[in-house]
Each structure stands twice: as structure tokens, then as C-alpha cells.
Design a protein around this nucleic acid. Structure first.
Lengths: 269, 269
DNA sequence: GAGTGGTCTAGACCACTGT
DNA sequence: CAGTGGTCTAGACCACTCC
């Protein structure tokens, strides 16, 4: 007979038990949990119930499992800080340098990653603007747009670390045909410099940030092998000195590996 | 005999099948999935396998289940925008108003929520600064601190929508004893006004944003009834006109209900 | 080969929602 | 009451890791 206890399911009680041992430090980060068979014996529950409990811990980001090895208390992830003000202003300053100076700095914006190990791909397509996109750009639907899709990855230890895409108005950039060719990516100097080549100065960048679970594709690309992680999605809108929207980009980053930093200066009293 | 097919598990294939029907719109948002028993019959797999597939979809945030009713394609969530520049500057301006004017504006910073329905609680404790906290404040460990814990919730439809805590230096605020009493919360005018009462002007606010799955406590408090959601965690550091750190606060928000907006003005060329 | 997690079955019963 | 998802069992076999 099943012993129906108090007001909670047995997998929930098991998960709570283990979670407490993890948060109190009885089970230290990196240490293995008891095997499923052992938990099954010790708690007098079936293997399925044990697996359900462990799945709960994985969903909460407390535990990772490796087939053939065991389940382990998750190690805290070292976070890469991404300071919007520093990053964007640095990119803009760099865009005003000579070609030689810029070339030296290609892809070094994240000093923590060795540039020689970076894996990069770019794919371009030309599409008419959808109604929603047109509204965000303040143009009419159907306007020819350039859609660029990027994947930037590190070596296995760091994992791929950013998925992004970008929309540009073809009419604003076609005076420089080099911008339409993905073979020129990664462009030394970034989008801010690309826009400079057609006479556009970016004056303001607005980031809209949300958090959500990764799609299966994103989990693969960002090397989020396990459940229990979230991604940060940044929708970036760039506005030039005349107030026009000149680029709309989206970036998806691993939430447990990234810390976004935003500084707000307040008006004085 | 189990038919071992191609290179994928049967729950994975079922999940992919359903996910595709959802993304193509064959299964519209809000519509019910076939029942588990029906899927079990149709795909010739056990109930457990069907449940595993549906769990996958829940983890990806595509589906929600309700006991006794069924599983449904998740509806997109309406997002509350939270613009840092507007919000913080508005709060600072308000802090300079007369007491009467401020009182009218209590808790109206989120215009989308009816203030009369808001559920609010505050809890204070005095603790010495930990080494880590002291480092962030630039003070010595053990300095007396005030730790304030808030829960702000809406009615059931919106759900509780913010969990936050805040650290202040006791030595900077004790000249106004009213600040030490939680009965005075929610304080008309917010922390920026509280600091103004002891002669401090906040000049800069730095937000550090990460994304992660919710802890069980957070899932309860933020009414994230299901797996497949993420939370945004904001660590806010307030700095006064003399460059001192005057408050460190953390806020946890439901990722599927919140959009953080940050504006960066770039230096001109 | 021994031990681990991963996939899967067949079936029972519980808890909840609707009519 | 019929139909739904939620909990749970007992057991089989697969895939992988490490010794």
C-alpha cells in the first residue's frame, strides 16, 4: 500500500530534502548526489519517483546529470560582464579610427576570450519589411531590408556564447556595396563603423531586455546542455543623430554566463 | 519489440511533432493539445513517454497543463515595460516635491496596476555587513546595516510581480529614525526620497541584470505556477553625488511578464 | 564488467474539472 | 459520472563511463 503522507508528493519531499542539503552546503558544489538506485532504496520509492525529483532539481538549475557518471551539484558559472555604456561607446570611438588601427582590434571587444579560438559565421538575406518591423523603423511595410544572422562561439569550455541578428534599411546602406556582402564579416569596427561608411552617426542605443527559457535550437547553439538555464534576449534599437532608427538587432545570450550592466545618470536636483 | 528508430528517442520525436504544430500555428495559442491517452494511442507509446514529451514542451515554455482540464498551447504574455531612465528620474523628481504631492503618487509608478489592489509587505532587520557586501559598499566588514525585504504583488490575474531587498548603511540614515521602522513602508517617494531626508542625493544608478530559472520560493511568490519560465534578477547599486555607494538592492521579476528598457546615449564624434 | 543515468512499458490509483 | 492530468510502482533494457 502506498503511504500517503501529509500534503506533499514523495518526489517533492525527496527534491526538497536534496535541495536543502545543497543550499546548506552538506552537498557541496561539484559533488555527486547519491545514485538513483541508492536514493530509491534509501527513500523506499521507485526509480521513476527518484528521477522525477532529480528532474525538478535540474529545472531549478541546482543539479546537472551526466549519463554513465552521475548527477552533480551544479557549479556556479563565471559570468561575463557586458557593460552597455562602455561597450557601445568603445565601439563608437573605435569606429572613428583609421583602418589599420581598427583591424588590430577585430573581435577583441570581449577581452576574456582568445580571438584565435573564436568561431564565427554570418548569413545575409534581403527581405521586405514586415508590418511590425516597419513600425519599429518608422517606415512603410515592404521597404527592402537586409537581414543579417550571426553566430559567435568560443571553444568548447566557454561554449558558443552569442546568437544575434540584425536588420538594416537597404536604402540607407546600398551606397557602400561592401556592406551587402557577408564575406566582409566580421567587419572590423562593427555596425557603428559600417554605418559611418554611409554617413550615419549612431547617437543613442536602446536595449530592451527579457528573460525566458531557451528554444531547443538556442539550447544547442549556446551549449546549454541541460534544462535549468535561461537566456537573456536583448532587442537593440540604434538611433542616429537625426532621430532615425538605423538598426534593429536581437541578441540571445546564456543567462547563467552573462551579466548585463547598465548605468543611469540622474538629473541633478 | 521496441522499434528503435533513427537517432532520436520517441518522446523527443513526439515533442518535436507537437512543437512544430505549435510554431506553424496548427495548434493555436490557447488551444488544447490532444489528451495524453489519445497521444499514447495515436503514437503507440506509453503514457509515461507522452508525459515526458509534454514535460519537455512545458520546460521550453510552449505549453501549460491544468489538472483535470488538459494541456494547452501557452498564450503570449503581455509584458510590463520598465524603463530605467524614466523610472529612476521620475522617482528622483518626485522626491523633491512637497509631502502632499508625494502622498498622492504612492505606488503609482507602474501605471498599469490599480494601486488599490496592490498587496505589499515589508520586513526589516539589522545585520553587520558581510565581507562581500562591505566590499561592494566600500566600507569595512561588520559595519551595521539595515536589510529591508519587500514583496509587492498584484491581484491574482497579474500575480505578484516583484520580490526585492535592499541594504542601507545605518550610519548614514539613523539621523532619521523613521527610516528604521517598517511601519512607514511603503514610503511615499521611495528610497531616493528616504535618502534625501538624511541629506543624500542619488546621482547614478547601476543595474546588473542576469537571467535564471526561479527558485521554488520565487516561483511561488511570483506566481510562476509552471516550469518553463525564467526570472530576471536586477542588482541595483545607487551612488550619491560624492561617489559613495548609498544603497544596494536586488529585484527579482518574472521574465515572461517584464521587459527592461535601458537607454545609452553615445558620446558624439 | 560494474555502476551510472536514459528510455520505455503496462498498469494502478489519485485529484481535479466539467456536465 | 466521464475525462483529464498527476503520482507511483516494478521491472526491462539501452547508452555511457570508468576501472
Amino acid at each position: 500500500m502506498v503511504r500517503k503522507s501529509s500534503r506533499s508528493s514523495s518526489y517533492q519531499r525527496l527534491a526538497d530534502d536534496l535541495a536543502q542539503q545543497i543550499t546548506t552546503g552538506d552537498l557541496a558544489p561539484g559533488s555527486p548526489l547519491p545514485s538513483e538506485r541508492e536514493l530509491s532504496d534509501r527513500y523506499k520509492v521507485s526509480a521513476t519517483t527518484v528521477r522525477t525529483a532529480i528532474r525538478l532539481l535540474k529545472e531549478a538549475g541546482l543539479v546537472v546529470s551526466h549519463q554513465g557518471r552521475g548527477s552533480f551539484v551544479r557549479l556556479p558559472r563565471e559570468k561575463i560582464r557586458r557593460d552597455a555604456r562602455d561597450r557601445y561607446n568603445w565601439e563608437k570611438k573605435r569606429a572613428a579610427l583609421t583602418e589599420q588601427d581598427r583591424a588590430q582590434w577585430v573581435l577583441q571587444r570581449d577581452a576574456t576570450v582568445d580571438p584565435s579560438q573564436i568561431d564565427f559565421s554570418a548569413e545575409f538575406e534581403r527581405l521586405p519589411a514586415s508590418a511590425e518591423l516597419a513600425a519599429r523603423f518608422g517606415i512603410v511595410a515592404g521597404t527592402p531590408m537586409l537581414h543579417r544572422i550571426y553566430r559567435t562561439g568560443g571553444p568548447d569550455e566557454h561554449g558558443a556564447y552569442i546568437l544575434s541578428d540584425s536588420w538594416l534599411r537597404v536604402d540607407l546602406i546600398e551606397s557602400n556595396p561592401a556592406l551587402l556582402d557577408p564575406a566582409n564579416e566580421p567587419w572590423p569596427g562593427g555596425t557603428i563603423h559600417q554605418l559611418r561608411t554611409v554617413g550615419i552617426e549612431v547617437a543613442r542605443i536602446i536595449d530592451e531586455v527579457t528573460g525566458r527559457p531557451p528554444s531547443p535550437d538556442e539550447a544547442r547553439a549556446l551549449q546549454l546542455h541541460d534544462v535549468g538555464t535561461a537566456v537573456l534576449e536583448i532587442r537593440k534599437t540604434s538611433i542616429d543623430t537625426t532621430g532615425r532608427v538605423v538598426e534593429i538587432a536581437t541578441a540571445v545570450l546564456a543567462g547563467d554566463r552573462t551579466e548585463l550592466v547598465y548605468t543611469t545618470d540622474l538629473d541633478p536636483w
